[in-house]
Amino acid sequence: MHALRHIRPGDWLTLLSGSVCVMWLTLSLWSGELADKAVIRSGGKIFREVPLSRDQSIEVPGPLGVSLILIQHRKVRIASDPGPRQYCVRQGWLEHAGEIALCLPNQVSVELLGSHKRYDSLNY
């Protein structure tokens, strides 16, 4: 074809890597439901519902003490918890809707919600 004459070998490489980049972006951004807000529960009752747009740290009181929840760059984690086994702390950052971290001894949980719920719960 006439126009293809202007495409040099490296240009094909650029085109290929550009296509891979677009495909990767599509797969990664359109697959998982991004979370909008975090629901923090304490003792089974909703303690607070916070949007993920603002970075903040929230102290949640429980029977054992205070659990510290961090919101940063649209991700949530439990930074510290008085529980003995620290499962919820070691779970790390949560970012997709449906993900949940439970601190059972302290009866604190944080769950991420998106615009619609695809899963009841996600765990890895």
């Binding site: 495409i7 240009d11 550009g18 359109w30």
Partner: peptide
């Protein structure tokens, strides 16, 4: 400042690839 705009990124990226190629040609 909302994560929702991330949904538009693949569209913009695809458009950039197509129009970038055409303009380059």
């Amino acid at each position: 400042p909302h994560a929702g705009i991330a949904y538009l990124i693949p569209i913009f990226a695809a458009a950039a690839l197509v129009f970038g190629t055409v303009n380059g040609l």
